[in-house]
Simulated assay, not measured.
Amino acid sequence: MKINTKIGFLIIFILLAGCSNNVENQDELESLLQSNDPNVLLTNAKEKQRIGAYEEAIEILNAAVKIDSKFIAAYNQMGQVFFEADKKNESVEAFKKAIAIDSENLNSRLGLGKTYSMITRNDLAVEQYLKAAEIKPNDVEIYFKIALEYWYHQNSEKAKDYYKKVLTIYPDHIQTHLNLISVYENLEDWKKAIREIEISRKLGKEKNDSTAISIAERKKKFIIGRMNLTEEGYQRKTQPPFE
């Protein structure tokens, strides 16, 4: 009987503690919503996002756009919060609202492209990244994103073109060289695939990147098998005069 009484008191204590925490959280949220400054609300929302309180972050951001309906930074932040909360459709809508206000906003284009990529709408992701490239030309990261989306969309020629744009700006971009191996394999351009393998191995050694070296070595074995080469035959194709 005494044990049951103790358990009962414990349950009541837990329920009361839970209610107290809920009240405190609600009071804190109401306090954060008091500001009439959208920038302050944005800062508060970012803090809520940081601790994973996504619903509260969205509520604060909604308050910010009620004050300033053209507050692009708030819509972009909504897009990021929804993305982290695995609400990709809502993320798309938030970024679209930002773009409707300013079609030249780079963060909106990149955010929408990233979200489309995550829901495997690679065609739409490419569209957004191409817009981003117009806003910020000659950017290595944007060109790399475009190439990757074209690859996912099974457009090897376009992927190749944009990887080459990356290398025009940054010739030692090792991940681009590694990715080009697969692109040239898919295009059955074995000579260029071998060239990219050797460049990747060289850069891997220079940068002490064991992962890159390992990937290049695996690709080398695949090429040898695909072309029915011996190790000696492969080496001949990596040395001038090239066959």
Rank of each mutant, 00 (worst) to 15 (best):
A64G: 09
L130K: 15
A132S: 09
T115W: 01
R226K: 15
Q128M: 09
W151M: 10
N21T: 13
I11W: 07
I213R: 01
A94W: 10
Y234L: 04
K114V: 07
I223C: 07
E206K: 12
K87D: 06
S214F: 11
A64P: 08
L148V: 12
S20A: 12
V92D: 01
I3G: 04
L187D: 07
N25P: 02
R218D: 15
S156A: 09
K207E: 07
D139V: 04
D189Y: 01
I12F: 12
E149S: 13
R236V: 14
Y129H: 06
T238M: 05
W190N: 14
E56W: 07
T115H: 02
F144P: 09
R218S: 15
Q34R: 07
V81H: 05
L187E: 10
G52L: 13
N25H: 05
E28Q: 13
I197H: 09
I14N: 07
Q154K: 15
G113D: 04
G113P: 13
K136D: 08
K46T: 00
A147N: 03
I99T: 01
M1P: 15
Y54T: 09
S108F: 00
Y170D: 12
S156W: 11
I223E: 05
E157P: 07
V126P: 10
N76Y: 05
I58W: 02
F83P: 02
K136A: 10
G79W: 02
K220F: 01
T176A: 09
N4A: 08
K221P: 10
Y143N: 13
A73P: 11
D86N: 14
E127K: 11
L112Q: 04
V140L: 06
N208E: 14
D86K: 13
K96D: 09
Y75L: 09
A216C: 08
I194D: 12
V126W: 00
Q26K: 12
R121Q: 06
K160T: 01
T120A: 08
Q26I: 08
D161V: 11
Y162T: 02
F144Q: 11
A125I: 13
P240C: 00
L33G: 05
I215L: 13
D86L: 03
K88A: 05
G204W: 09
V92F: 03
K2T: 10
S91N: 07
A147K: 02
L61Y: 00
E47S: 14
K6R: 14
A94Q: 03
K221A: 13
E84K: 05
G18K: 02
G113S: 08
I194M: 08
Q34C: 02
I58V: 10
A212D: 07
I169M: 12
Q77Y: 02
L33T: 05
L32N: 04
E217G: 03
L187N: 02
K88M: 07
V183L: 00
K46C: 00
K207T: 07
Q80K: 03
S182D: 13
E90I: 00
S214L: 13
K237V: 04
S35R: 06
L203I: 02
S69E: 15
I223S: 03
L10I: 09
F13Q: 05
L42S: 00
T168Y: 10
N22W: 06
N4P: 05
K46W: 00
E93F: 01
Q175S: 15
K70L: 11
P171V: 01
T115I: 04
S108P: 10
R218N: 15
A98V: 04
D86Y: 10
L61R: 02
Q154E: 15
A193D: 14
Q154S: 14
I101A: 06
P241E: 03
E231P: 03
